[in-house]
Design a protein around this nucleic acid. Structure first.
Lengths: 165, 165
DNA sequence: TTGAATGCAAAGGATTTGCAGAGGC
DNA sequence: GCCTCTGCAAATCCTTTGCATTCAA
């Protein structure tokens, strides 16, 4: 996918930040955690637990991480503020949070792609609404569902062909 | 919950509308469908399949509807445009769509209540964003997570008590 | 009468958990 | 060495499905 936004410049790497997180909680720096963190931050992409597992070495191979550990560790990344989690069509989807600007998504129900966009008004509006309703915001999530530009185009092409018969 | 918005006046009842839907698809008007529709529209509330099942008579009793039928029928209500479905904490939540105005939600992660609010700017902004990105919108969903007014208050009270010790 | 709908039991998919052994610190 | 972490297997939760029976039209 080529809809990456401009990353935020951060002084501390995700690795370092996660190290601090582990230390502060008396947790250990294991091979599995290192492997997963590197993999997750090697590429900017939305993914679910299965997709991450597919990118990992298979059982028996060097660098393998089991499914339960993947789930456990993703939760830790969220707690550490590195990833953000949300739900889409019944499964959990993760995305970069640390070092990445606030943004929202279009979700194309045809190609099932998430398309990121930035718009300051949404955050402003959310903050204003929260103030009005005395609600203390932790986070918000706007997802716009429909058909993306590419899919609209290809659908139109198909129709034309049919029309010509 | 007492955060109901003003219903939209509709000429046709949900029952009638669903009847038309069934007819147009060659589907049948069964006791189960009638029971569920009446139950669902007897009260304005967000609910999941389990909560609906709890409000139904138990097995053996008059008016009982089995779990698979509840799931199947909720899907039909969504297809008929009577309900809207979304995901929250990994389960499917339903709300009135027919006869109810467009709105968004605060979700209090403490009391797990959904609080509705109306704001025209969100729809406008969504439409504008879609236009800019050549995206064809089918629906959108904004959920603002955090702590609601009541929970903030009670939390404060608890703190005060503790402070007095 | 006849095809659609239901209930049952069972399957399915995603995620979590208990626990014994492995391994950071 | 102690205590956390991992992988395994199994459990759990929510939802869907196959199929024989029931029932609306």
């Amino acid at each position: 996918m080529s809809n990456e936004l401009e990353p935020i410049k951060v002084a501390v790497s995700p690795q370092e930040r996660f190290g601090d997180f582990l230390q502060s909680r008396g947790m250990r720096q294991t091979e599995q955690r290192k492997n997963l963190l590197n993999l997750v931050f090697s590429e900017h992409e939305h993914f679910d637990a299965d997709q991450l597992l597919e990118r990992l070495p298979s059982k028996g191979e060097l660098g393998y991480v089991s499914r339960p550990t993947v789930y456990r560790t993703l939760g830790e990344f969220v707690d550490a503020g590195l990833l953000r989690k949300f739900e889409l069509d019944g499964r959990s989807v993760y995305e970069h949070d640390y070092g990445y600007p606030e943004h929202d998504h279009f979700y194309c129900t045809k190609c099932e792609q998430l398309i990121e966009f930035q718009n300051a008004q949404i955050a402003d509006l959310t903050a204003e609404l929260a103030r009005t309703h005395n609600f203390q915001v932790r986070s918000y999530r706007l997802i716009i569902r429909g058909i993306c530009e590419d899919c609209r185009r290809s659908r139109r092409r198909v129709r034309r062909k049919v029309d010509l018969i």
